[in-house]
Design a protein around this nucleic acid. Sequence first.
RNA 1: CGGGGCAUGGCGCAGCCUGGUAGCGCAUCUGCUUUGGGAGCAGAGGGUCGGCGGUUCGAAUCCGUCUGCCCCGACCA
Length: 564
Amino acid sequence: MRFSRLGLTTLKEVPAEAEIVSHQLMLRAGMIRRLASGLFTWLPLGLRVLRKVETIVREEMDRAGALELLMPAVQPAELWQESGRWDQYGSLLLRMHDRHERPFCFGPTHEEVVTDIARRELKSYRQLPVNFYQIQTKFRDEIRPRFGVMRAREFLMKDAYSFDLDHDGLVASYERMHAAYTAIFERLGLGFRVVDADSGEIGGSRSQEFHVLADSGEDAIAWSDEDDYASNIETAVTLRPDGEPPAPAEELRRVDTPGARSIEELCAALDIAPRQALKTLIVRGTEGPVALVLRGDHELNAIKAAKLPGVADPLELAEADDARGAGAEPGFAGPRGLDCPVYYDHATALMSDFVCGANEPGVHLAGVNFGRDLERPETVDLRNVVAGDPVPGGKGTLSIARGIEVGHIFQLGTKYSEALGATVQDSDGNDVPMHMGCYGIGISRIVGAAIEQGHDENGIIWPAPLAPFDVVIVPINMHRSEAVREAAEALYDELSAAGHEVLLDDRDARPGVKFADAELIGVPHRLVVSDRGLAAGELEYRHRRDAEARMLKREAALDILARG
RNA sequence: CGGGGCAUGGCGCAGCCUGGUAGCGCAUCUGCUUUGGGAGCAGAGGGUCGGCGGUUCGAAUCCGUCUGCCCCGACCA
C-alpha cells in the first residue's frame, strides 16, 4: 500500500471527545471516526487491524471444532418473549417495528436465535456436541457509551454457543473453549488473565472472564501469587479472620461529630484511621430495610450483598424515612439499637474500641466493643477484596490489577433449551433439553485494549499479529533523488512479493512528517532509504520498540524482516 | 436515568462578561524556496457561531427552549 493512496489524515492534536489513550490514538491515527454516541466508522487503516483480530479468532475457533454460521442481526420479539427476556432485558435492548407494526429488536446477543436453530436442526444426541459461532455486529443501547470502541453501542463480537447432551459434555465443551480462548489471546500477543466471574443476567453456573491487563481497565481483578486462584473483584471471596478481637481498652462514650456524615469526614473530625470506624449502610430489603456493616476502610460489594437473604436484588440504598423507621439516622447510622436485620462483614470481627454512628444526628459512639456494647456478631462476606487479603484456597495473598474484559465464557445449562424446548433424543429415546454454553469475545474491544497495552508518547505499538502493516518504507527525498525512488520501489516490490504487508510512504513530505506518522500508526518495522545509505549499500532499520535506528547491509535488514 | 460540563470552518481553541465587520493555530489547495524528526514565504478555499423562539435598530454575544456531545454512577464483549 502506498501512503498517498491510503486516504488517511492523521491528527497532531487530540480531539476533545477522547478521554483514554486508545481512543485518542485511534482518532489521531485515522483508524476510526465517530458517527454518533457509541457508533463508529472503521476507516481503512482501522479495519485492517479489526480484520486481523477477526481472522485469528476465526482460525482458532475453527481449530477448536466450532462451526461458523451467520445469524440475523434483527430478531423477532416473539423469540425473546418465549425466553422471557423481552421484558427482562430492559432498555439495553434496541426495539423497533417493521411496516406491519410487528416488534423486533437489534440483537444484543443471540441465545434465543441460536437455540431456535438448535431445536430445529438438532434432533439426536448423535449430532452432539455442536458449537455454533458467528462474528457479527451487535447493538446494545448502553446507558453510557464511552472510551471509543471499548464501550461502543454497536460493536463487533464473536459469539459461540455449545450444545451437549448432558452436564459432563457441557464441561468438556467449556474446557475446549477455555483452551481456544487462551490460544487466541496468546496469538494476539496480549498480556491477559483468566478470572472467575459473576454469571450475571445471562444465568448459568460457571463463568470466567478473559481480561487484558491495563490500568485504564474498567474492572478490578484479584489473583493469588501462589496458587491459580483468580477472580473478578465482584466475586473474589474474603475469609473470616481467625482469632479474637483485643480486649476492650476504652469506655463506651458519645462524641459530638456535627456534619461528619462520611467516613472521611468522621476520621478528619476525630483524627482516627478509617479502619477504626464502622461503616453502616441501610439498604432496601424484601421485608423492610437491612443494615450492612463494614470496616470503614472497606468497600461494599453490591453483588455479594444482593445475594444475602432478605436483601433486595439489585442492591439499593433505603429511603431516609425507611431507615429512620428501623432506628437508623442516615449519615450517623450504627448497628447499636437498630430494629432491623444486620449483616456484619467478616473483617469487623476483629475490631475493638471502634467508632460508629449513634443513630442521632451529629453524634457518634466511640470506644465501642463487641461482647460488651454490641452482641458478638455472626459475620458474612460483604466487601471487595483488597490487595494483601489471604487467598480463599489458603495459600498466599491476593494481588489486584485493572483489566479490560475482552472475553467471557459461561456454562448456561438448560435455561434457554428448556424455555425454548430445544431437546434431543438420548440413547433411550427420551427427549432431553440440551446443555448449553456460551462464549463471547469483543473483537472491536480487543483493538482498543491492544492499544491501551501497547503505546508510548509517539503513538501505537502493535503486537506484531495486529499491526495494520508489518513494515513501512520511508524514502528520504524520493521526489528529488531518482536513485532513492528506484531503490524504494524495488524494495517495496521485493518485500510485497515476499508476503509482507508493506506501507510505502511515497508522499512528497519532509522526513520528520513521515517518521511521526509511522510511529503514530505503529508499524513494527521501519526501513529508511536514503542517498547516504544507498552509497554504502545500506538501509536504516528500526523496530518500533527500539530506542535507536541502525544502519544495516540490505541483506541483513531483509533478513530481520524475513524472521518476522 | 440522576449529577456536572461543553457546543464557533475537518481538528484544537479565542471572541461572549461589557451586543455593532467572525478570528488564531493545525489541516487542505496553488506557487516559490527547503528536504534526516511534524519547514519558510506568498496567496486561496472553507463557518446561516448546534436548532427553534424571544429581547433589540442590530445577537456568536442577553433570555427561553429543544437537540447533540463529554465527564462521574448503575450495565457489559
